[in-house]
């Protein structure tokens, strides 16, 4: 971004790589916590989950997702929805994250 190109899904996803799950120590995109991401003009809609319900870091992660998305040029509003279904599982990680944790399929 910053080169004048229009805001799109990839720009937001790229920015969300900077938001981590502190306990697992990987970013929320590679962990597979982001279930849906839509960009409608300047509005960003994100549907995501946590690795476990009641996660003490939940408020910070949600706030971090909101703030990081909002900081992108062209974003006028951000809606972050937290869902518990489908429940997160290690199989949702990207291959890179699976390799990092040594996750067995």
């Amino acid at each position: 971004m910053g080169d004048g190109s229009a805001l799109n899904r990839e720009h937001v996803l790229d920015a969300l790589h900077e938001v981590i799950d502190p306990e697992l120590g990987s970013n929320i995109v590679d962990l597979g916590l982001v279930y849906e991401l839509e960009v409608e003009g300047g509005l960003v809609k994100i549907t995501m989950t946590m690795t476990t319900p009641g996660c003490p870091a939940q408020d910070y992660i949600l706030s971090g997702v909101h703030e990081r998305s909002k900081s992108l040029p062209g974003v006028t509003d951000v809606e972050v929805s937290l869902v518990w279904l489908p429940a997160w599982a290690p199989r949702l990680m990207t291959p890179a994250a699976k390799a990092h944790f040594g996750v067995r399929d």
């Binding site: 938001v19 502190p22 306990e23 408020d59 910070y60 971090g64 703030e67 900081s71």
Partner: peptide, 18 residues
Amino acid sequence: WLSRYGSHLGRGGVVPRV
């Protein structure tokens, strides 16, 4: 992490992992 770093998440700096 929750006490000192959590509030910085997504606000322009890289925060350490646990």
